[in-house]
Design a binder for these strands. Structure first.
Lengths: 106, 106
DNA sequence: TGTTCATATGATTATGTGTTCATATGTTAA
DNA sequence: TTAACATATGAACACATAATCATATGAACA
């Protein structure tokens, strides 16, 4: 069994600390700018400027939000010359968004 | 295929409106009180007061947050006499939390 | 009907958060 | 080293939101 919160009625409340972490994680997904950034870089890594251009938003706005994504280990960073390329960290991230989409679209 | 956001690199940005809805959905999960409520009622339906007692929080706090959960169709409501019983709406909700837990606990 | 109990709601307050502007940091190339 | 470029950061502001207190709504039952 992967964890204590499975669909087959085996629910047990995790420690408060874990619950706070969990809420914090979802908070990161709870902003449309960050969601759009995640979609934008889900196929391919992209530089900060090209993300900003793709979303028609300020560079600093994107940079601030990328930091949030970074701090929560949702994106990977790679420097190449002057540019810094961001990509989604793992398929976990995609799956969480996918789950949410299923609920929103149903 | 369920939607456009699958792990096998078939990502396409949904409409802005959908992205806002998606962010709003995750916003609901982004509060520890609401997360705790969802855990509390994940096994069994419970009245507002008993949720408040279980979490040692004010009745009105719980009531306010239950409204948020209700508005986002994350809980089911059933009246029985004076009491109103809340339960999780579907296993979708559990799965989203489970996904998040996996990421937090890894 | 009137009282009691369970829940919901409105107003207020404190706190958190996203964006912007200005500027700093750090890299490349002349 | 200096200039040009890409990114990050700090401060300020506007806005959103969670908790609390007080009170309203609505159901049950004497």
């Amino acid at each position: 069994m992967e964890n204590k919160f499975t669909p087959d009625n085996n629910t047990e409340m995790p420690d408060l600390e874990v619950l706070f972490d969990l809420a914090d994680l979802f908070k990161v997904f709870g902003d449309s700018t960050r969601i759009r950034i995640m979609f934008t870089i889900s196929d391919k890594e992209m530089s900060v400027l090209s993300i900003a251009e793709a979303l028609k938003m300020e560079q600093s706005t994107i940079s601030h939000q990328l930091r949030v994504l970074r701090q929560n280990k949702l994106v990977r960073v790679r420097r190449e010359g002057k540019q810094i390329y961001y990509s989604l960290d793992d398929d976990h991230v995609k799956k969480i968004i996918e789950m949410g989409l299923d609920h929103v679209l149903e």
